[in-house]
């Protein structure tokens, strides 16, 4: 019983972080139809920005989160201008953009390493203290705060995408680019906005994760980018609701495996899980139609 509560607790925390990361991938994929692999490095960059703002300058945690969102969002626009925009519409552009964003990701990661060094840095907590429930479960307020921040960000994103003019345009571009053009939306500017938003979300995910791990290093982004991708694809590429469900399912699954089987089994189990899912439901949770997959 108490083991189960531990799984749920850990799973929710992981799910909350994965959701932001995967939303970053999904938003960009939805609008531009490519996997933005610089997001892994931008995730790490977000954590370092917050580390500087909150850890070194001593400003409140919220300043670190907002700062990471804004600054990394701008970096995302830079990535778009340098590595994505010149490729849009070229034949074979899907794989070309994967490679170029991967390259930019490497450059960003190496720059992080040059600036802050390769070693682990200590990340300050958002909130301290904890609550003991039963004999196994210790709920850290820190992690509760992580889940709350994630929920607030997701809610804000939801309102943005359904209520605001530019939010609507992001979804419109994802569904029918020509129609968006004819409605007067500058597709190029929407792409920029999407890249900024996606990068900002990845940054917030990076901040939240490093506060949970209480440390950060330049390579942390890689394996979490991979998980973000797993979630994105499991959720059905480009589907926002599918992505959210997938994030929490995978968070719970990972927590389950690490509580019952041990840490080392997490990735292999996740991989097997994904293979099984793709065989049974090739479109992911959201079940994209057959012609979409090919």
């Amino acid at each position: 019983m108490s083991q189960i509560s531990l799984v749920i607790y850990q799973g929710l925390v992981l799910g909350a972080i994965y959701a932001l990361m995967a939303l970053a991938f999904t938003l960009v994929y939805g609008a531009l139809r490519f996997l933005n692999l610089s997001l892994g490095a931008l995730f790490t960059l977000g954590a370092y920005v917050a580390f500087v703002i909150s850890g070194q300058l001593g400003l409140p945690a919220i300043a670190g989160i907002v700062g990471a969102f804004v600054l990394v969002g701008l970096a995302g626009v830079g990535v778009y201008q340098i590595a994505v925009r010149p490729l849009v519409g070229r034949p074979g552009w899907e794989i070309a953009s994967i490679i170029s964003t991967l390259g930019v990701g490497i450059v960003i990661q190496q720059l992080i390493q040059l600036v802050w060094g390769p070693r682990n840095q200590a990340m300050p907590e958002i909130v301290s203290g904890n609550l003991r429930v039963g004999d196994v479960l210790v709920i850290q307020y820190q992690r509760v705060a992580v889940v709350l921040v994630s929920l607030v960000v997701m809610t804000a994103l939801w309102f943005f995408l359904t209520r605001s003019r530019h939010g609507l345009a992001i979804r419109a571009v994802a569904q029918n680019r020509d129609a968006a053009y004819l409605n007067g939306a500058s597709v190029n500017r929407i792409f920029m906005l999407v890249m900024a938003l996606g990068s900002g979300l990845a940054a917030v995910a990076g901040v939240l994760l490093s506060t949970v791990l209480i440390s950060l290093n330049p390579t942390v982004g890689l394996s979490y980018a991979l998980r973000g991708l797993v979630v994105t694809i499991f959720g059905g590429l480009g589907s926002i609701t599918g992505t959210l469900a997938a994030a929490f399912i995978i968070g719970l699954f990972e927590a389950f495996v690490s509580v019952y089987l041990g840490e080392g089994w997490k990735l292999p189990a996740l991989f097997l899980f994904l293979i099984v899912v793709l065989v049974i439901r090739p479109g992911g949770l959201a079940g994209v139609s057959a012609e979409e997959r090919t």
């Binding site: 991979l226 797993v230 590429l237 994904l274 793709l278 090739p282 997959r293």
Partner: peptide, 14 residues
Amino acid sequence: RLKGAYVFLLTLAF
């Protein structure tokens, strides 16, 4: 059988 992005992810995960 799936889209390129899936192959990319599965192989990177592998």
